[in-house]
Simulated assay, not measured.
Amino acid sequence: MYRWLILDRGYHQMPPGNGPPAFDDEHFQFLQRLSASDFRLGRRFTGAEARHLIETFRAIRDTIREGPARFIMYPGTQDQVFEYGSGHIRSSNAITLDLDFLKAVGTLRVPRHVWEALARHASWIEPSILSRWVELLENYDGTAPPGAYRDALSWPNVEHSTREVRTLAAQLQESGGPLYCVWSGKRLNDGYDIDHCFPFKHWPNNHLWNLLPTAPEVNSGKSDSLPSAQQLHKAEDRILRWWNQAYRQTDYESRFYEEAQVALPLPTEQPTSLDGLLTGLRRQRVRLRTDQQIAEWSAQ
């Protein structure tokens, strides 16, 4: 977000006379040469790009540690809300944006009750934060036309996309591999859909693990509903078969696990196993059902 505001829009993030934020240095400025899509999980950087990115993460780490992690306290107390664990990033000429690297940057522990409150009341909390941020930006600069700061702070809509996985499914079929509907078990021949296991309408997510081959009529019946616990249990073997067929020992494998690790509550003892991922899928289903009360669906 700061990269977009500072490098692309040139909006001040500090009061007049305070200068730029501590992390806005030559290394941060280098990021202007990269696009937003370059920062997806699994992206590898080498040479000057890696060195600049490492220094940028170090500066961001220090800013968080000395700023919000230090000064955000419970009202009327000197008790810090967030527990910050500073990491150690080694200098290198090659890095990959994966979980190991991000852990090396540092950790920020959010108390469970704070996390649950943020998750359940996000529809009220987020607009309040954005309104305050817009107000601050207008006070810091004020040269942009009306509405520009609010537009700049609007998250882009995530595209509902299944194109990549649809292409992968077609390639598997062409190579002679059988394709089955994960929900009904029906063998898929000419026509099939790619379903979002957790409905995109309620949880915009195009990760590989969330996209499953499905018969068109089944996908239509499921629509924007959440698979029931019973339905997910019935489909487990077929989901595992699809994940194994599509991603294991392929160029997609590392990305498949990285996406799962950032999105699902995986068991710590099985973070990179299909069984562990299935456990995370069950847990996330319960969370979505509890927090959003999404209608459940089971195949007939």
Rank of each mutant, 00 (worst) to 15 (best):
H113M: 08
L118N: 08
A119F: 04
H121T: 05
H121C: 04
H121A: 05
H121M: 02
W124Q: 14
W124I: 11
E126F: 12
V134Y: 03
E135A: 12
L136R: 14
L137D: 05
L137K: 06
L137W: 08
L137R: 08
E138M: 00
N139F: 04
N139C: 09
D141A: 12
T143F: 10
T143R: 15
A144R: 15
A144P: 06
P145S: 08
P145F: 05
G147E: 05
A148I: 01
Y149V: 01
R150A: 15
D151H: 06
L153M: 11
L153P: 05
S154Q: 14
S154A: 13
S154I: 07
P156V: 03
P156E: 04
V158R: 14
V158C: 00
H160D: 15
H160P: 08
S161L: 00
T162Y: 03
R163F: 10
E164H: 13
V165T: 14
L168N: 10
A170R: 13
Q171C: 04
L172P: 03
L172Q: 14
S175W: 00
S175Q: 11
S175H: 04
G176D: 13
G177A: 09
P178I: 01
L179V: 00
C181N: 09
W183R: 11
S184V: 05
S184C: 09
S184I: 05
G185P: 12
G185H: 12
K186E: 09
K186G: 00
K186S: 02
R187N: 10
L188F: 10
L188G: 10
N189L: 13
N189T: 14
N189E: 14
G191Y: 00
D193L: 02
I194G: 02
I194W: 09
I194P: 03
F198L: 11
P199M: 08
P199Q: 07
F200Q: 13
K201V: 06
K201W: 01
H202D: 10
W203T: 07
P204K: 10
N205C: 11
N206G: 15
N206V: 12
H207N: 06
L208Y: 12
L208Q: 13
W209K: 05
N210R: 07
N210P: 06
L212T: 11
L212W: 09
T214P: 00
P216Q: 06
V218P: 08
V218W: 03
S220Q: 14
S220V: 10
G221W: 02
K222D: 01
S223V: 03
S223W: 07
